Amino acid sequence: MSTPQLPSDVRATAQRAVRLIDERLPGYLDGMYLHGSLCWGEYFDDSDIDFVATTTRRPNETDIAKLQQIHRDLPDHFDGFYVPTTQLAEDPSVLPVHPGVLHGKFTVAHHCDANQVTWQELAERGITVHGPDAGELDIFTSDTVLELNTRTNLEGYWLPRLQGLVDTPDAGISPREAAWSVLGVLRLHHALTQHAITSKSGAGRWGLEAMDERHRPVIEHALAWREEGRDDGAFADDAARQSVTVDLMSDVLGQHDLHPTDTP
């Protein structure tokens, strides 16, 4: 697989992160890798820069304090986490807590991206910024764990999200919210039915062929927003957009025996 060309601002941000870590924590950083939309060649104007940084050791309190300061000097959309290199060979669901940042908020916890999808992306198409090539790393991959994690995500995150939309049918959702929901559930549906990971846009294009034709307008709407930041005008208002989003989400989750409860 050829490595996608990195946008200049992405490369500059990632290299700045490496430089700051090496300056303030000499010997701590082992590797810096990018994944997410970048590794699929689908980086758009509002995309995050998703990273995994591998380290030579578990962090102590001084390391954590310095990492937090480093991320104050980096953009809020530089999202990711730090794990010892050896822990890439482990099931990510059992990792101990680790430093990470999401939308500018630094925590020591289990980062939401420390999951089997990220491990698969690193193993199959990770982009190396610093350190050993991603293809040379010992990374845990398991179709069984991927399926289990995907199912857990559908049940633990997307079913409650769908329930919230069902319970408030007149609230309306924005094009951004519709794109997040439509492409998010399609990506997981693809993983469970095709036994392979794909990008959000890839899931949308697959969904145009795989899903019932009635869902085409909302999938095209989601792709237009994700890839161009454009409302294609397919829906009269936010409530209409919510209705078709709920229909698609219900269809996808229903195919995995997950159903919202009816609102009284």
Rank of each mutant, 00 (worst) to 15 (best):
P4R: 01
A14W: 05
L20N: 01
I21P: 04
I21T: 11
I21W: 00
R24P: 11
L25C: 06
L25A: 03
P26Y: 03
G27K: 05
G27N: 04
Y28F: 15
Y33N: 06
S37T: 04
W40R: 07
F44Q: 04
D46W: 14
V52C: 11
T54H: 08
E61A: 15
I64S: 09
A65M: 04
R72W: 09
D73W: 11
H77Q: 10
G80N: 03
G80P: 02
G80Q: 05
G80L: 05
Y82P: 02
A89E: 02
D91E: 07
S93H: 12
H98P: 06
V101H: 06
V101S: 06
D113M: 15
V117Q: 11
V117K: 13
T118S: 12
W119K: 09
G126P: 04
G126M: 01
E136M: 14
L137V: 12
V145E: 02
L146V: 10
L154N: 10
L159V: 07
T168P: 03
P169W: 00
D170T: 13
R176P: 05
E177K: 14
A179C: 11
L183H: 02
L186G: 01
L188Q: 10
A191Q: 09
I197S: 05
S201F: 07
R205Y: 15
L208W: 06
E209A: 15
M211E: 11
M211H: 01
E220S: 13
H221N: 10
L223W: 04
A224C: 07
A224P: 05
E228R: 15
G233I: 08
F235D: 00
A236P: 09
A240C: 08
L248S: 07
D251Y: 15
V252K: 02
G254I: 04
Q255W: 11
D257H: 14
L258G: 02
P264K: 01
